[in-house]
Simulated scan of single mutants.
Amino acid sequence: MSNMTRIAAWQCEPRPLDVTLNLGRLDDACAAAAAQGAQVLVTPEMFISGYAISRAEAERLAEHPGGTTQAAVAEIARRRGLAIVYGHPERAHSGRAYNAATMIGADGKVRGRHRKVHLFGDVDREQFVANSERPATFDLDGSRVGMLICYDVEFPESVRSLALGGARTVLVPTANMIGCDQVQEILVRARACENGIGVVYANYCGADAVFEYNGLSTICGPRGELLAQAGPAGEELIIADVPVEPAGTYLADRRADLYGT
């Protein structure tokens, strides 16, 4: 296992409701990332369908795990030779939709899944049902990784839980809006530093019919250092070598006997 993973965060404009177009855009982005040696590419939140699309559209476009969209992304991953973390609506047993992210390895096989735990605002709560399961870590080429979605990463408990589960990197598809720059400027860096892990935060730029997004996609190292950051506007592919070796002493020195976790 290398002590670095080269990861790309793809900042792009949303193209709501056009799954075919978005799969084509994903293929192009993966080609560009692979040409620069990236081992993983992370898309924004709900990239496949668009984020603010209404409950009816989220449920219409939602698929069960193993559906046709997953198969299409798996084919891109195999052909381009890199792992992909992509945001998409996933069908729940109730017929509702989860706000989900899936990682598919370069071999086309699913490495892990996450359904958004913390729903933000009226749009999230109207469109999606919240996941009731604790975020889990999984293996990627000999290193443990985890996924969160947007608002999830703003809760210290979410990232700490993954770090305690062995995650060396947390990958975060997001749709953060203008006026919320403190997330990229403070919180993402703090989550990385306080857990001694890398955090990759892939955001939209531009706008859809509901929101204007603030870009600033960010890749942080395990001391909270900025390894790469996109601008506030415009599509951009940022790539950085993220250390997977532990950093800092917070996890080792924390008083779990006092905090109960």
Rank of each mutant, 00 (worst) to 15 (best):
M1I: 05
N3W: 03
T5R: 01
R6E: 01
A9E: 00
E13Y: 03
P14H: 02
L17G: 03
T20R: 15
R25E: 08
D27M: 13
A31H: 15
A34P: 00
A38W: 00
Q39D: 14
V42L: 12
T43S: 10
P44F: 01
E45N: 15
G50V: 10
Y51V: 04
I53Q: 08
A58V: 10
E59Y: 06
R60L: 09
H64M: 06
G66P: 09
G67W: 14
A74G: 13
E75D: 14
A77C: 08
G81D: 06
L82K: 02
L82Y: 14
I84E: 08
V85T: 06
V85W: 03
V85E: 10
P89W: 11
E90R: 14
R91T: 06
R91H: 05
H93V: 13
A97N: 09
A101D: 08
A101S: 14
D107A: 00
D107F: 01
G108W: 06
G108R: 02
G108P: 12
R111G: 00
R113T: 15
R113W: 04
K116H: 01
V117Y: 12
G121L: 03
R125V: 05
R125G: 02
V129W: 05
S132N: 10
E133V: 02
R134T: 12
R134V: 08
D141I: 01
D141R: 11
R144V: 08
R144L: 14
M147T: 11
L148N: 09
C150K: 01
Y151N: 13
D152M: 14
F155S: 13
P156R: 12
S158L: 00
S158C: 07
G166C: 07
A167N: 02
R168G: 00
V170S: 10
L171Y: 11
V172S: 05
P173E: 04
T174A: 15
M177A: 13
D181A: 15
A190Y: 02
A192L: 07
A192T: 01
G196C: 06
G196F: 15
I197T: 02
G198W: 09
G198I: 11
N203D: 04
A209F: 02
E212L: 05
L216T: 11
S217P: 05
G221P: 11
Q229A: 10
P232G: 09
I238M: 00
V242Q: 05
V244S: 01
E245N: 12
P246N: 07
T249Y: 03
Y250N: 11
L251Q: 14
Y259K: 07
